Amino acid sequence: MTSWDEFSAAAPSLASRVRARFAAADSHVLATLRSDGSPRVSGSEIDFRDGEAYVGSMLDARKARDLQRDDRFALHAYPGIEEGGDAKIAGHAVEITDPAEVARLQDGQESHLFRLDLREAVLTWVEDNTLWIESWHPGSWVRFARPDNGPVVRTELELGVRVRVRGRMG
């Protein structure tokens, strides 16, 4: 399981930029899986506290039932904001079932609450004529560039420092 704090320690500059994108708006797009395996998207808020990231849901809502059945999720930061890039996280949503813990974290509201176990974080942005994609998975942090819509260049990152380059530089 990877908490928000563990992700932040592994890829601090990326985590900071992804969190800033989520902080830039209140509502984001949550993708879950329906019982037939097809995708469902819903509006959702994200909350960062105690070193974790959480999403909540009204009691018995479809997205909560989806996550209870299949805990895989993807959360896309509100896509209408151009500045700061396009941020997405994905992984497994673990339901908090202790009523006292839910009440503490939800300020007394009765609702479903899911802690996000991160398996992926991606930030995409355009700078000059280059599309940049920075991607983190546990144990891997890479940056891809597509200069002038040409071939992809992959750069592995470690704590924000270039380690090795594969492909040609544009």
Rank of each mutant, 00 (worst) to 15 (best):
G56S: 15
A31H: 12
A121I: 10
G56F: 14
N129G: 08
D117Q: 10
D66I: 00
D47G: 02
S35M: 08
D5R: 14
D107I: 12
E95I: 00
D107L: 13
V94L: 11
A31G: 14
L59D: 03
F73Q: 06
A87S: 01
K88Q: 13
V29H: 12
A53M: 10
A87V: 01
L105C: 05
A74H: 07
W132I: 04
N129P: 02
E95V: 03
Y78H: 06
S42A: 14
R34T: 14
F73V: 02
A10H: 06
L113R: 02
P79S: 01
P12R: 03
A24F: 05
A103F: 02
G80K: 12
V102A: 03
D5H: 15
G108K: 07
A10N: 12
A64Q: 02
D128K: 03
D117K: 06
P12L: 02
G51Y: 13
S13Y: 10
V126D: 05
L67R: 04
A74K: 08
L105W: 05
D107V: 14
T124C: 04
R19S: 13
Y54W: 05
P79A: 00
E127V: 01
R72I: 02
A74W: 10
L118A: 07
W136I: 04
I46G: 08
E101I: 03
I96S: 01
R104K: 10
L113D: 01
T32F: 11
P12A: 06
G56Q: 15
L59A: 01
R65K: 13
T130P: 08
D60L: 11
L116M: 07
E101Y: 01
F7K: 10
A20T: 14
I46Y: 09
E82F: 08
K88A: 07
T32R: 08
